[in-house]
Design a binder for these strands. Structure first.
Lengths: 199, 199
DNA sequence: CCAATACCGGACATATTGTCCAAAATCTTA
DNA sequence: TAAGATTTTGGACAATATGTCCGGTATTGG
């Protein structure tokens, strides 16, 4: 692996490779993309590619680092808020929807086909971390549901991923704020919220 | 493609191939399995494989058909039962967990790794219908959340699939009744259930 | 300026895919 | 049961992908 991440040549190469992969993903199925495609598109030598990434997947996965950082930040600031309890929960949700809306093209490309498996898996991994944090922070006091906390983590993340992909499939018509609100309501209070007798 | 599905040789070969794939899936990652692996395991000629299936995927999908039929039948009989109203809410849940437990081997083989995407996709499709019915039946009166009912469907199914796979990954240790109860509680009341003052 | 380092580019061994064939084995049915 | 139909075999085949390696060249940081 090319060690120093500060060398201009290193940075240049990595950007070229990532951009090339994104370009290709928008054009064809993730599975159909070969290392050769990538280095041709990026104008980079084959050995250079392997000097930076072990495989196509490694390159692909690396692209999610920024997203992870973004979501972690939002989660942290949400947890730090002093508002009502609900506002502190699920701090990643809103940011995630907004990020997806701001990069609809690439997200939609990511979600479809085989690449979606890797992409969604990666997002799922990041979100699981955050939800785990959330639960640890907010459920710390009542040891009640702590027994199967991991089940809850999977439940929440699974639900979120489903809503996210549904939303993307629907071309992200609903405003992020709205989907976010719906998701939060469902997650925090369930699908049968106080069967209010309101007409 | 070998035409006649009644020829003993044909049937024998297909069974051999499907069994071989299942055996291999239990041993290694779906992605890592090659056609060669399969025909070696099945003791079948390479050309024979391609006489029956276009690809590894085709074989995988075909093998899943049986499970799908089985699942639908199970759901039918579950729906036909006469229970009180509460029991019919999310009625698929309990039956699904029990069915999964009764066929743990196959489920785990299908669900694990990336090969599971295809299988889970089918299950997801079936469940979506059931949940849609559920919501239509129980939320019919209050037109409130009807606007984005499909979002709720995806939410519930996504959450359920996540719990199911988590449960399977954990070797289905928890009794079906217990997972079912947890899932229902989360879905109907949310993860922050009325912060009951109970100690 | 110059030593360090990253890139090139192409060769290389290896592996996988999917197709093809003629001969042998097996099946169906008359 | 015999014969005609069908399937399996086993290996050869081209095409393509992967991952490693090297000497030579270009760029960089100090």
């Amino acid at each position: 692996m090319a060690a120093k991440a500060t060398d201009r040549r290193t940075l240049r190469t990595r950007v070229l490779l990532r951009d090339a992969l994104i370009t290709l993903i928008l054009k064809k199925d993730y599975d159909a993309i070969t290392v050769k495609d990538i280095i041709d598109q990026a104008n980079v030598g084959r050995s250079t590619f392997y000097a930076h990434y072990k495989s196509k997947e490694a390159l692909f996965r690396g692209g999610f680092e920024k997203l992870r950082t973004l979501l972690v930040e939002h989660q942290r600031s949400a947890l730090a808020e002093r508002g009502n309890a609900d506002a502190r929960r699920l701090g990643f949700s809103r940011a995630m929807f907004e990020h997806a809306r701001d990069h609809t093209e690439i997200y939609r490309a990511l979600v479809r086909g085989r690449g979606g498996i890797v992409a969604l898996g990666e997002i799922r991994r990041v979100l699981s971390e955050l939800v785990r944090e959330d639960l640890t922070a907010t459920l710390a006091r009542n040891g009640a549901g702590a027994a199967h906390r991991e089940l809850v983590v999977q439940y929440v993340v699974g639900a979120f991923m489903a809503v996210l992909t549904w939303w993307l499939d629907r071309r992200a018509r609903l405003p992020p704020a709205e989907v976010d609100a719906l998701f939060r309501a469902l997650t925090l209070r369930g699908i049968a919220p106080a069967d209010d007798d309101a007409p």
